[in-house]
Amino acid sequence: MRSEPAVTTLVPTMATVEAVRRELDDTVTLSLALSEPSLTPTPGQFAMLWAPGVGEVAISYSGVGDGSRVDHTIRDVGATTRALTTCEPGAELGSRGPFGRGWDLSRLPGRRLLIIAGGLGLAPLRPVVEAATAGTLGTSSAQLLVGARSPDAMLYRDEISTHWASLEPQLTVDHATDTWKGGVGPVTIALGSAIGDPATVEAIVCGPEIMMRVVARELMDRDVAPDAIQVSLERNMQCGVARCGHCQLGPLFTCVDGPVLRWDEAEPLLAVRER
């Protein structure tokens, strides 16, 4: 049977935009104050953010707060995200959630954590990165690997170089100019030196599906077990409560059975083309 969602309503809670931080040309982080507190989100879960009169879109939590204050990092890619990314402080939005299965942090104590992000995929990982930085995950060690299109498209670049420096960030871009200090190439080029003892590694990976597949294969080629790799899938989520049907992936409703899956769960599903 499908997982039972903790939140089942289609009725949003109103939220006020408290702060807007521009991250990239097309990307902002909204800090929201919810008019009624939700359940405290687990890192990796998502909310349905509603731009009244425009539409609703699934956006992961980039800051989980306490359920009454949350952050969402949003890229302008369509009508609804355009409305969200152009909000001014004080704007009113709707929010439903938290939805879905987040990162399984219970697997981390005693392990070497690799946090591997591609592009905007760093946003749902941000709460994990912050916990890793604060040392609250119980890991034996942690490293952050981030891939982006170019240096100026790298999300949270200031935080990476300051607050997150203890995670020895390995940054790679597809192309760069000569002021860039990180790697150039796909994010996988940094994996070899990051893994260490593969038996101790737990990898959590978020980015475009192709990037996650390439990373997971590379990790497995280097003897990391498939059940020690977590990925977060993007599908068309409209209801968040396993009712509208859009986000199905084989037997799964990605909105409640995901978005986070272990690679041993995800791989056979993603192996079927256009599923």
Binding site: G118, G119, M211
Partner: peptide
């Protein structure tokens, strides 16, 4: 690696 870069994965995906 070059083909992956050619896909420009990060430019056009994941609204999040």
């Amino acid at each position: 690696a070059t083909r992956l870069q050619l896909l420009d994965l990060y430019g056009g995906s994941r609204a999040l």
